[in-house]
Each structure stands twice: as C-alpha cells, then as structure tokens.
Simulated scan of single mutants.
Amino acid sequence: MIPQVTDWDDAYANAPHIPGGAGFPDRWAAEAGAFRDRHPPATLGLGELYLPDDPRGLAVIVHGGYWMKFGPRWFSHLAAGALARGWAVLLPGYTLAPAGQLATMRDEIALQIAGAAARVPGPIVLSGHSAGGHLAARLICADTPLPDEIMARVARCVPISGLFDLRALRRTAMRGDLGLDDRTAMLESPLFHEPHPELSLHVWVGADERPVFLQQSRLIADAWAGIPRETRLTVEPGRHHMDVVAGLTAAEHPLTEALVGAV
C-alpha cells in the first residue's frame, strides 16, 4: 500500500532519495558522448537517428526529465542495445517546458517518428523513460497524432517508469511550468484514454523507485489490461529511477528484449 503523501514535491523527487543521485546526469552525458563518438548519428529535427545496415525495424526511445530538462544528447547510449540487435533507433527531441506544452511535445515526437519511418521499413516499437514514458504511452492512445499508416506499424510500447495520471502533479511546483490546469491534466493523462488495441504493452518500473512511480505503473497496467493484444508489467529488482533505463544499453538485457525481441 502506498504511504500517505504529505509533500507532493518530495513524493515525485527522485535524485534526493538515491545515493549519488545528483551525479547521474553528468554520467549519462559522458556515456552518451562516448557512444556518439563510436556511432555518429544522423540528425532528424530535434532528434538523433542511428541507422544500421538493413535495419530490422525502428525503435523509438523518448527521454525523460519531467518535460523540462535534458535532451537526446544525454541519452544517446540508450540506443546501444537495440542498435546491436540490428534495429534503427530514434531518440526524438522536443521543446521543453515552459516554452513547449505537453501536446506540442507529443506532436513534435510524432513528426520525427514519421520522418524516421519513411527511411526505415518494418515494425516500430516505442519506449521512453519517466516523462518520456508518458509521451510514449500518449502516442499509442486512440487520438494519436501518428498517421494511420505509421500507427499500423507500431507493434509494441514499453513505457519505463512513466507518468500516466498527471492529476497529482497539479499539487507540485511543476504545475505552472507544465501548464497543468485541470483540463490539461485530464487530456494529457494516458490513463483517461484507450490505447490502440493492435499492439502489445509492456510497462516497466524499478522495484526501488519512489512509491508514486510504482503506483503509476501499476495503475496504467491495470487500467489498460485487456485492451492491447497483450499487457505485461515488470518490476525490475534492484533498480531505482535513475538506473532503471540502463538495461537498454545491453543487447541481451531483458529490457532490450522487452522492447525489440520477437516482434
């Protein structure tokens, strides 16, 4: 059972509750830079596109940062696992809040996916971490901005430690920068939409995450169960919010398998 929340800003704060949490962004940036040196990406709008020879399909990984921080250049290394398995990988960028609003971010990512899909044949799989998990899930809702011919190629969505019910964030200091009035919180929460049925959903979260993130992942897995052709929830032991995405760097890690395996 989730404990009673008395401080909503603290409930959604991750780095202060993780040993060495403040150092993760610098670590990500260093690993991402080293990966780009080995695998220079093509640019696609605000994003990065990694293209192997004869790609098996297109994997999309949307970065997190509470919609207000970071960009693909902090997370280039997350393409490593799927790329090693022969998948093209798109790390889309989006206009950060407060300049960008949630619906704008979703639409910008959809345009980049369409651009990458025009260059890469085969199935498409979507993922994202934290705020990126929210945006990935939002893209598979019935009112997706993805064109029908692109949506028909989407085989799977794997949101990682995502945010699916945004109403609680109205109680945090982020609400102003995110433009989270009552209407926006409802419209942009995947929880209040139905997903496309012709794909599979695999919700992923770390066992050592803050209670609200565990709750958010269980909530969407339960709410959407039975609508996609398959719905799964994995609570990965020993992982917290900052390292739960690390599995994407390894070709044989279960998280990479969840994203690009047996499509």
Rank of each mutant, 00 (worst) to 15 (best):
L135I: 04
G65C: 12
H240E: 07
A142V: 14
G128M: 00
V260S: 00
G162K: 01
F213P: 02
Y66D: 10
D143F: 14
V89K: 09
P197D: 14
A97I: 03
D9M: 11
R36T: 08
G162V: 03
A32C: 07
F35Q: 00
D9E: 11
L180K: 09
F35S: 07
N14T: 15
L126W: 02
Y50L: 12
H134V: 05
W224V: 07
A251R: 08
L233G: 07
A15W: 03
V125I: 08
M242I: 14
R27T: 15
A99E: 11
H241T: 10
M1S: 14
A207Y: 03
A131E: 00
Y94H: 05
T144F: 06
G65T: 12
R36Q: 06
A221P: 03
V203E: 00
V235K: 08
L233T: 06
V263H: 08
P55Q: 06
G65D: 05
L146A: 02
M105E: 00
F70E: 06
F192T: 12
G247D: 00
H134P: 00
L255M: 13
M68I: 12
T249C: 14
W28M: 06
W8L: 11
G179L: 06
W67Y: 10
P25Y: 12
D143H: 15
E31H: 15
T6D: 12
G57S: 07
E198H: 13
A22G: 14
G33A: 14
P52T: 12
D222I: 12
C141K: 08
P55Y: 07
A97H: 00
T234E: 01
R229G: 13
S130A: 13
Q4D: 14
P3M: 10
L91I: 05
R153V: 05
S200F: 09
D181T: 01
V244L: 04
L139S: 01
